[in-house]
Amino acid sequence: MPMDTAHPLPLALLRGAATVMPEPALSAIADAVLRGLRKTHPKLLRNLATLDAAVVHVAADDLPYRFALEVGREPVTIRIVERNVTGADAEIRATVATLVDLVEGRIDSDTLFFRRDLRITGNTSVVVGLRNVLDREELSLASELEALCGPLAKPARRLARTLERVADAAGRRLASMHRTLHPPGAEQQDLSSEIDRCHSEIAALTARLGALESRLKRRADKLA
């Protein structure tokens, strides 16, 4: 069964709306999606409640907010918090597109991890549990969001398609500009990697120098 690799309908809507909507409205939508999931995927909510009690921040690189998911308790809740809010037990970071693909089971999280396209910190156990619990379900965020729109589902779908086309066109223009500014063959070295390598070398040399100094001191003490 080949997986559908096309991005789902609500992606542009989600990204566009999340960028411009005030936090209380976004929180209300996230909460409504969770309420909808309680009806359409009751096992998902039950399984989320059985995980270790934790607050997981899901931080999309291209959104101004984070989602704070509280699992391991009844009821499971989701809130929108500012990007700079800390204190979560675990944090998951990726782009919106990647996160939506993960939730809908179109992409393998280990593959993303190997490629470093998915970053996790904090309580790994709860993140692994969350991944597995989500992967048990065949979720469609498009369906969940459309269900919220009721009779307005069709116009919302049209709006989402328009937003997605606009976002794709903007992305292509940006990529074209990037290629013009950075032609092939003139790629800059990854300065951070170089700095990291230098740090490692300095640490190794410092350790060896320390060992040599100790040895010299021992010899000097013996000769004295």
């Binding site: 190997f114 470093r116 910190t121 990854d190 951070s192 990697s193 990291d196």
Partner: peptide, 26 residues
């Protein structure tokens, strides 16, 4: 997993097992 200075360090039972530079497969 911990991020520091552009690297990701992985630990098991408090022992560092690996450290990946930016762009290096994990």
């Amino acid at each position: 997993y911990e991020e520091a200075g552009g690297r990701v360090n992985s630990r098991l039972g408090g022992v560092t097992l690996n450290s990946f530079a930016r762009g290096e497969p994990a």
